[in-house]
């Protein structure tokens, strides 16, 4: 689905990552876990073309592209809902910008509102609902993109623990029900262990892959699984080693 080869990015003398590579299988769920400031968000910025890469190549479905640009959907840790629009208008933004048929887009958005538990809130403004509901609306908007690859930049980090737990299962819907390929940045190891098929543990700058872990088993996984606890401690040890360095 997505292959990144020997990607490098420097800011002046600072090497954010050098010869960084990764491969995402179609309909896979990959999580990037690393210390704060290691360059995960810069990687997303380079992948989406917001920041220019120094060297390396990006291939989407076997075709080399300068960057992913508008070929991927993107969900930020902030919901980025426009306060002057209703939830429905916010969800319809991607289709409105793409010039899609409004009637069909509304039907699709209504179905997604129902599926994500937002039915009846279509005409509310973002300021009138809770943070969890806003993030669910952001998820509806992400699904309205109609793109196979979805980039999630710490999508639940701004939420409280209880809301986050309820939304984690909704993130799985992206993969299971909507057949998306997902690349997610998270600083929450448990979240990565619960949701991802593959976890890339990243080092500090220059960012490189310290280890690649495939937890296996049926998702969503349970936190009290001794095997997962063991993996979590292993990842924590790896990251703490990075912090000491």
């Amino acid at each position: 689905m997505l292959t990144v080869s020997n990607l490098s990015k420097h800011f002046g003398d600072l090497a954010v990552f050098e010869n960084f590579s990764l491969h995402l299988a179609p309909n896979g769920f990959t999580a990037l876990v690393g210390p704060s400031g290691c360059g995960k968000s810069t990687l997303f910025n380079v992948l989406t073309g917001v920041v220019a890469k120094d060297s390396g190549s990006v291939s989407l479905q076997g075709r080399e592209v300068p960057h992913l640009g508008t070929t991927s959907a993107y969900m930020h840790q902030k919901d980025l809902l426009l306060p002057w629009f209703t939830l429905m208008d916010n969800a319809l933004l991607p289709s409105k910008i793409a010039g899609e048929n409004p009637a069909q887009s509304i039907l699709k958005a209504r179905a997604l509102f129902k599926r994500l538990g937002l039915e009846g809130f279509e005409d509310y403004r973002p300021g009138e609902i809770s943070g969890g509901m806003r993030q669910r609306c952001a998820l509806v908007r992400t699904l309205m993109f109609e793109r196979e690859l979805v980039l999630l930049d710490e999508p639940l980090s701004a939420l409280d623990a209880i809301t986050r737990a309820s939304l984690q299962s909704l993130l799985l819907l992206l993969q299971v029900e909507f057949k998306k390929t997902i690349l997610m940045i998270t600083h929450d190891i448990e979240e990565a262990l619960m949701l991802a098929d593959e976890i890339l543990v990243l080092s500090g700058r220059p960012m490189r892959v310290l280890d690649q872990i495939c937890p296996g088993g049926t998702k969503p996984r349970r936190f009290d699984d001794p095997r997962l606890i063991e993996i979590k401690l292993y990842v924590l040890n790896l990251l703490q080693g990075e912090l000491v360095q």
Binding site: T48, V50, T70, Y74, L80, I97, A98
Partner: peptide, 12 residues
């Protein structure tokens, strides 16, 4: 900037 990036990625 985050909103600008979102609109850019939506192809606006």
């Amino acid at each position: 900037q985050e909103f600008r990036v979102l609109f850019r990625l939506m192809g606006a």
